[in-house]
């Protein structure tokens, strides 16, 4: 029984990290209908920036988190402004290639700065609690806690504020938003920044949990989170989270019940099956009239 509970904890932890990243994909897809494949690298930069920050001045976790989110958020907005906006009306494939290219550039900049994986310092005293055969660390609690908090904040923002309303409206019809005199570009930049900041937060939390920082750390997990976002219904925030937790728990479950060799095979087959029955993702809706 405690074995199962332990695995459930593992699944929640994995799911919440996937979730934070998946939100970024969905946010950006929502307002621009584009896949920002550089998102995994913004995730990596979050970890990297925090590492640099801690090397210069050791800051407490909350401050490091805020600063990292702020800086990488601005970087995300800059990326949108410099790379994506000029090609917004170009064919979709150009946007895909541009974002892949931007990702490679970011990766190689960090690779040039630090060719070897680096160790991430711990930002607080981690203590481990054992009860009834279940192990949980204060780090895990904090990581899951911060992830959930950020997710709830975003959900409230999207649903209950004017800004969230505009972001939802943008997702529906960008032209109409500017026809209402709203500076759509500013909101798009802001949404990008928000997505990048969430990715960076995920990167930081990830690096705290698995304390090796390398320039390639965002690639695999970036793809997984992207898949999670698609499974949940890309463009839909709650869908992204749902997809992330489904992916996390399928991975853990398949390891639990079968040889771990089959993990990815099982996890991704299941996801493909979901897509067969729900081609737009679990909470996604088929695209209707858009311009």
């Amino acid at each position: 029984m405690d074995y199962i509970i332990q695995q459930v904890i593992n699944a929640i932890q994995l799911g919440s990290i996937y979730g934070l990243i998946a939100l970024g994909y969905s946010l950006v897809y929502g307002v621009l209908s584009m896949m920002n494949f550089a998102h995994g690298d913004l995730f990596m930069l979050g970890a990297f920036f925090c590492l640099l920050l801690e090397k210069i001045i050791p800051l407490p976790l909350w401050l490091a988190l805020l600063l990292t989110m702020l800086v990488i958020g601005c970087l995300g907005a800059l990326l949108e402004r410099l790379a994506y906006r000029p090609i917004r009306h170009a064919p979709k494939v150009s946007a895909i290639i541009t974002s892949l290219g931007c990702g490679l550039i970011l990766e190689n900049i960090t690779l040039a700065m630090s060719p070897y994986p680096r160790h991430m310092p711990t930002l607080f005293q981690n203590s481990i609690f054992h009860f009834h055969g279940i192990t949980i660390s204060s780090l895990q609690i904090i990581v899951i806690g911060i992830s959930l908090l950020l997710m709830i904040l975003l959900d409230v923002m999207i649903r209950c504020t004017t800004l969230g309303m505009v972001i939802r409206a943008l997702a529906w019809n960008r032209l109409m938003v500017s026809l209402l005199g709203i500076p759509a570009n500013r909101i798009i930049s802001f949404t990008f920044a928000l997505g990048a900041a969430l990715g960076a937060a995920a990167g930081l939390l990830y690096a705290l949990t698995y304390p090796v920082v390398s320039s390639s750390m965002g690639i695999a997990i970036g793809w997984k989170a992207f898949i999670a976002a698609v499974i949940g219904g890309i463009g839909n925030m709650r869908g992204a989270l749902l997809g992330a937790f489904i992916l996390g728990s399928t991975e853990v479950m398949s390891i639990t019940m079968l040889p771990s060799t089959y993990r990815d095979l099982i996890a991704y087959s299941l996801l493909l099956i979901i897509l067969i029955f729900k081609p737009y993702g679990i909470l996604g809706e088929p695209p209707t009239q858009k311009i």
Binding site: Y3, V212, M217, I221, R263
Partner: peptide, 21 residues
């Protein structure tokens, strides 16, 4: 126990939980 992962994985807790058992 013989457990596996793939390159780029960072989370091994599910496999390790199984190994611990």
């Amino acid at each position: 126990a013989m457990e596996t992962y793939t390159s780029q994985d960072r989370d091994f807790s599910a496999q390790l939980t199984k190994i611990q058992a």
